[in-house]
Every structure is written in structure tokens, then in C-alpha cells.
Amino acid sequence: MTLTVRDFRPADAKAVADLRRASLPFLISTPQGVAWQLAGAPRAQQLRLFVAELDGRIAGSVTSCLLHESSTPGQGAATPQVHPDRRGRGVGGALLTAAEEHLTAAGATRLFAWAVDEPGPLAFAERRGYRRTRPSHCLRLDLAAADLPPLPASLPPGVRLCTAADFGADPSPLFAAEAEAAADEPSDVAADALAYEHWLRTVWEHPDIDLDLTSVVTVDGEVAAYSLATTDGLGRYASSGTGTRRAFRGRGLARLAKAHSLLRARDAGCTEAFTGNDATNAPMLAINRAFGYRPFAGEWRCVRELGRG
């Protein structure tokens, strides 16, 4: 058995996308998206994607980067993904070592990772010195068979439903809404320093984002709520973020945006939908369960202070 860890090459894009779907079935991953992630990464992110080859075949990968969208310096992220058929052969450990060494050199002092809520991944994280901080729920909806609620026959005065594609000339209002909503999401890492240029490159222009299926609710012409959609061309749809600006909360607008997006996704041929929520995000969990989402997998956010243990 020969195990090698190296940097990603463009020719690896399909293999890495296939690997991600096999190891974490709730993730949307495409070859175009994998390649874009590397090509579009800002310098401040210090992003590197490592792949592990086992006997000449890609068996795992890990994306390591600084969390520069947070105002707290020295935070990094890395979560190894190993093909289910290649686990237990040292692949995950070798990938995580490479990621930790890279991020330490880049100035990170704290590293966050995700571990699937199963005995094996959790034990692996603990052995590597990571402690659990907060759980997250991954939910799945059988979109083809779901009993989705119809849209209202009429919307309240001033309320309008549209898509992200309608903002093609100027997406900045959608960015402002997401930046405000994301800053309030429960998390170990505050997303309070998101820059417009970075958002344009990594969200708006990302090939996996479906602008036609991303729904936006405006009130008197102002973006009030949204539901970002990603698709993979294989019938899979995922919510990349649903939120409401503070001034418009409590009016059911996030639910309206997500219902609109899900209905459009089904009409476009998507057959299953995925979403993820922090375990403390009760309002969004309630919305998703009302749509028919059911538990699919659990994850734990884990953290390690680099240079210790």
C-alpha cells in the first residue's frame, strides 16, 4: 500500500467531486465547483486543497483555509473526506496533518473541523486533539414526492417574489441581505467580515449556485429575505442559506422564499433536496420540518488549538 498526499491538480476535479459525494452524500459537489473553489480563492484565504492517493487512486481530500470572513484572526478550517471504501488506512490522518501544517505556517492558531456524528469519525477527531463544540443537523427532502405548500394566491401589499437572476445587473442588495443574516446565524465563527468582492467570486459567480432557483423576497423594492440554491445537474438541490434581514423578521418571508425556491426546483427536475442547520437554529429547523425535511445525518463542529496536543 502506497499513500501519497499532494496538492490538487485541475485534472483531479472530477475525482474529488465524486469522492465528496461518496463520503458526504448531502453535499453538492461538481467538477466545475471544485475547480472554481481553487481558482477563485482570494489570497487572504490561503486556501489549499490536498488530495491523498492510495495505490495511485484518489482516496481522500481536504480543503484547508483561513476563515478570513470573520473579524477574529488566526482561525482556520479543514475537514478530511475519505472514500468509504478507503477508510481505516491512514488517509484521513495524513490529510489532516498536511492541512494542519499548512495552516500553522499561514498563521492559524485555532482550527475548526466537522465530524460526522458517528463513533468512528468522532473518535478520530478526539484522537487528533479536537473537542466537540456544537452539533448540526443535515436534513433531506424527497422533493419528487413532497407535499409542498402552494404559494399564496396573492402577496401582501409591497411584497414581491423574484429570483437572484433578476439581480444580474447589480447583486449588491442580495449580498447586503446575506451578510446581515449570516452575521446572526448561530456558529462558533462569526461571519462578520464578509467582503462584497469575495462574495461575488465565491457565491454569486460559483458554478454550483443556481440563480434561477435562488428565490428573493422584496418589500417595497428592498431585499427582505432570500433562499440560496445550489444544484449539481444530477437531480440534487441544496439550500446554501436562507435568511431574512432584521427589519423584516417575524413575517414568514424566509418561509415564502424557500417555498418558492423548492417549487421551482421541483419544476426544474430536481428530485431530492438537502439542507443543514445548527442544532440551536430552532426557527429554521421548524420551517424545514414543516416542508417535510427529515433527519439524514448529524455532524459536530470540532475545534483544536494548533500547537497543542
Rank of each mutant, 00 (worst) to 15 (best):
G92W: 10
V51T: 10
E101W: 00
R140P: 12
F291L: 14
P119T: 01
A190N: 08
N281Y: 05
Q75Y: 02
L49H: 08
R132V: 11
Y293H: 11
L24S: 13
A22D: 07
P25M: 12
A52Y: 00
C302S: 11
T214V: 04
L213S: 02
A273Y: 00
A115N: 04
V216P: 03
G292C: 12
P207Q: 11
L263W: 08
I58L: 07
T163K: 02
Y196K: 12
P42R: 11
R251C: 12
W36A: 09
A169W: 03
P156M: 10
P25Q: 11
S187V: 03
F124W: 14
F26W: 12
V189F: 04
P121F: 07
R87W: 02
R110G: 02
T4Q: 14
H83M: 06
A106T: 06
A224P: 06
H102T: 14
G90V: 06
A22E: 01
D208Q: 05
A179H: 05
S71G: 13
S64V: 08
A190D: 09
L263G: 15
R255C: 06
A17G: 10
A94G: 00
P80Q: 15
P207R: 10
F175Q: 10
A99L: 03
E100S: 13
G221C: 08
A297F: 07
A146M: 02
L263T: 05
K258E: 06
F248W: 14
D210K: 00
A247W: 08
C270D: 05
M284C: 03
L96Y: 03
F50L: 09
D208C: 08
G292I: 05
P283C: 12
R134C: 08
P171D: 01
V16Y: 07
L54N: 03
L139K: 04
S61N: 11
C65D: 06
R110H: 09
R289C: 04
S261E: 15
A146S: 05
R251V: 09
H102V: 10
A15V: 14
R86M: 15
T271F: 03
H198Y: 13
G243K: 06
S187K: 04
V189S: 06
A17L: 04
D188L: 14
L24Q: 12
V91R: 09
G269F: 07
T214G: 04
